[in-house]
């Protein structure tokens, strides 16, 4: 029997599939389908220092092979998360990742400090949300700003720090190196690619925010390419995501260099995707005599 568990920064995940931030809320709804322990972990909805209302609707549009979203970080705030959501999440027998976003460096540091004394397993630094006016992505698009925010948050964070990269950049490997140099323990990637859809009858963008973040199968090859580039540039582990929809995608992304994976958009189509993808990976490992997930990571043989 193959072993699906993976260890990242000394933290063991029961399997390599983690729910992607923003697609899974704080787990309660999906827990009506299955025990959350079918997932290796959950990256919770992005939280901010103070509660946020988010953007006006519509917040989603469909496109070939994917979706655009512009939720705008609607969330109840970090204190609510720690008091009301985390105690329940910790009983679900899966790893918990807190995804944080802020308007200022001080916001990020204040949240990291609060979470340091909580039960979360990781802090994921969301410096790549394309859907809010100030905050998030402006920290994530240059080596200097990524380095500075990573360094600052690391000083306040006692939990392993995962830095989530934006794909909306020219050279993602350089950005990853800057995060690693400044103290990131893990890289997670990719966040959504900025896109736009227009209703040709009304001439209005379908999303009220005009633009939104593209996710789903459509972004998969971009994610694989970027993960491969980053794998070749840094030593710290990568949690890969972006369009993983079936077990073959999962294996492919691991081969590109990911140590574990997050899955998001596919859950809207099939809430049972994590169960099915894990079964597929397990069968693939059995058939190919692979004992550990880590034996797949980075095994691509490039030309």
């Amino acid at each position: 029997m193959s072993d699906l568990s993976v260890k990242i920064c000394g933290v063991e995940f029961g399997n390599p599939l983690i729910a992607a931030s923003g697609t899974f809320g704080f787990g309660r709804e999906f827990a009506e389908f299955y025990p959350l322990s079918v997932l290796g972990g959950i990256s919770c909805k992005g939280i901010t220092l103070k509660p946020r209302e988010g953007n006006p609707p519509p917040r989603i549009a469909e496109t070939e092979g994917g979706i655009l979203n512009a939720v705008g970080l609607q969330n109840p705030g970090v204190d609510h998360f720690i008091e009301k959501d985390l105690p329940w999440l910790k009983e679900q027998n899966t790893r918990i990742i807190a995804n944080i976003a802020g308007n200022t460096q001080e916001d990020y540091c204040a949240m990291a400090e609060k979470l340091s004394d909580s039960d979360v397993d990781f802090v994921e630094l969301n410096i790549s949300c394309p859907n809010v006016k100030s905050g998030g992505v402006q920290f994530g698009t240059s080596c200097e700003s990524v380095g500075a925010i990573t360094d600052a948050v690391k000083r306040h964070c006692k939990k392993p720090l995962m830095v989530k990269l934006s794909p909306n950049v020219t050279d993602i490997a350089e950005i990853a190196k800057s995060a690693e140099y400044n103290g990131a323990d893990v890289i997670s990637m990719i966040n959504t690619l900025t896109g736009m859809r227009i209703d040709i009858n009304s001439k209005r963008p379908i999303i009220r925010n005009n633009t939104g973040g593209l996710s789903g199968a459509a972004v998969f090859p971009v994610a694989v390419r970027m993960i491969w580039q980053v794998y070749n540039a840094v030593k710290i582990p990568i949690v890969g995501m972006g369009g993983v929809s079936k077990w073959q995608d999962a294996v492919e992304m691991l081969m590109a260099g990911a140590s574990a994976l997050q899955i998001g958009t596919v859950l809207f189509n099939d809430p049972y995707a994590p169960v099915k993808i894990n079964e597929g990976i397990s069968k693939f490992m059995d058939e190919n005599g692979i004992k550990n997930i880590s034996d797949i990571t980075g095994t691509v043989i490039p030309w």
Binding site: G22, R28, V71, Q74, L267
Partner: peptide, 17 residues
């Protein structure tokens, strides 16, 4: 009516004030 993602309350895309 609102455009939806998950349909169960997890993704927050179907917002209504």
């Amino acid at each position: 009516e609102e455009r939806m993602g998950c349909g169960i309350g997890a993704c927050l895309v179907c917002a209504c004030k």
